[in-house]
């Protein structure tokens, strides 16, 4: 039983990170129907920038809290600029291009960013500076750390803030309108270019935050870390129903928990035939099964055929 609770906690933490990254995918997809494959790399860059900034501030003798906040701030700003630049330079010229063209561009940008990161930070694993104190808690036999609590609380608060932004502000309304029908939205005076840029910038900021969390949690980072993380997060977004914000959040948390439980129990379930290194397949198997029965994801809108 304590394994169960333990895996739920681990899954919740991992899932919160997935959810934050998934939001970046789902916002861009919801508004312009593009799978921004480079989003995972934005997260990676967020982590690596934090290592450089926070690491050097700590080495310079600054207080850890200050260094952490400065690292977070700088990486959020850099990622926002990166997201904005991606949209402006790579995707915007392709608005009227065939459907697969921006997808290949996204893949190209992903390759570019990965290799830029490798040139800047090298090909070795980097150690993430300890920004949070290592405090352990115990609850009903399950262990968890201050870092885990921090990740769940901060991502929860961030997502609440995002929902408020989308449903309570004028920019949010413009984004929702554009997602429904860009042509009509622009007739109503919505500046489509600004809305799309905003989706990229906000998504990238969330990605940077997720990147800092990943670094804090796993304590290491690498120029290739964004790929699998991005893939899982995108899976989470599809699981929840891509284009749907709440769906991305729930999909992320759900995916994290399923993975953790799967990794915890797969050995018992298969009589030891399959071990925990099969963890990565759970995400995809769950996705395939869910889409077989709910073709638009768990919380996606049903899009029927219309004559």
């Amino acid at each position: 039983m304590d394994i169960f609770l333990q895996q739920i906690i681990n899954g919740l933490v991992q899932g919160s990170i997935y959810a934050l990254v998934a939001l970046g995918y789902t916002m861009v997809y919801g508004i312009m129907g593009l799978i921004n494959f480079a989003h995972g790399e934005v997260v990676m860059i967020g982590t690596l920038v934090t290592i450089t900034v926070a690491g050097s501030l700590i080495n310079a003798g600054m207080p850890v809290l200050f260094a952490g906040l400065a690292g977070l701030g700088v990486s959020v700003l850099i990622c926002m600029a990166l997201g904005w630049g991606l949209e402006r330079i790579a995707y915007r010229p392709l608005r009227n291009a065939p459907r697969l063209t921006p997808l290949i561009t996204a893949i190209g940008m992903s390759i570019v960013l990965q290799n830029l990161a490798m040139m800047i930070w090298g090909r070795n694993y980097l150690t993430f500076p300890p920004l949070l104190p290592k405090i352990n808690f115990e609850l009903a036999g399950a262990h968890f750390t201050a870092i885990q609590v921090f990740i769940v609380v901060v991502s929860g608060a961030t997502m609440a803030g995002l929902l408020a932004l989308i449903y309570r502000t004028k920019l949010g309304m413009a984004m929702r309108a554009t997602a429904q029908n860009p042509a009509v939205a622009s007739l109503m005076g919505v500046n489509i270019n600004r809305v799309i840029a905003a989706a990229f910038v906000i998504g990238s900021a969330l990605g940077a935050l997720a990147g800092v969390m990943v670094g804090t949690y796993y304590e290491i980072a690498h120029y290739q870390m964004g790929f699998m993380l991005g893939l899982k997060a995108f899976t989470a977004a599809v699981l929840g129903g891509i284009g749907n914000l709440a769906g991305a959040m729930l999909g992320g948390v759900l995916l994290g928990i399923i993975e953790a439980l799967g990794a915890g129990y797969i050995g018992d379930l298969t009589g030891g035939f399959l071990g925990s290194h099969y963890q990565d397949i759970f995400a995809f198997i769950v996705l395939i099964v869910v889409l077989m029965f709910k073709p638009s994801g768990l919380f996606g809108e049903k899009t029927g055929d219309r004559a």
Binding site: A90, T101, T105, G108, I111, Q114, N115, M118, M119, R123
Partner: peptide
């Protein structure tokens, strides 16, 4: 990494 960088850029530019 430089060769992959050029490769990625080539994809972006062609598209």
């Amino acid at each position: 990494s430089l060769r992959m960088l050029v490769f990625g850029l080539a994809l972006v530019l062609v598209m």
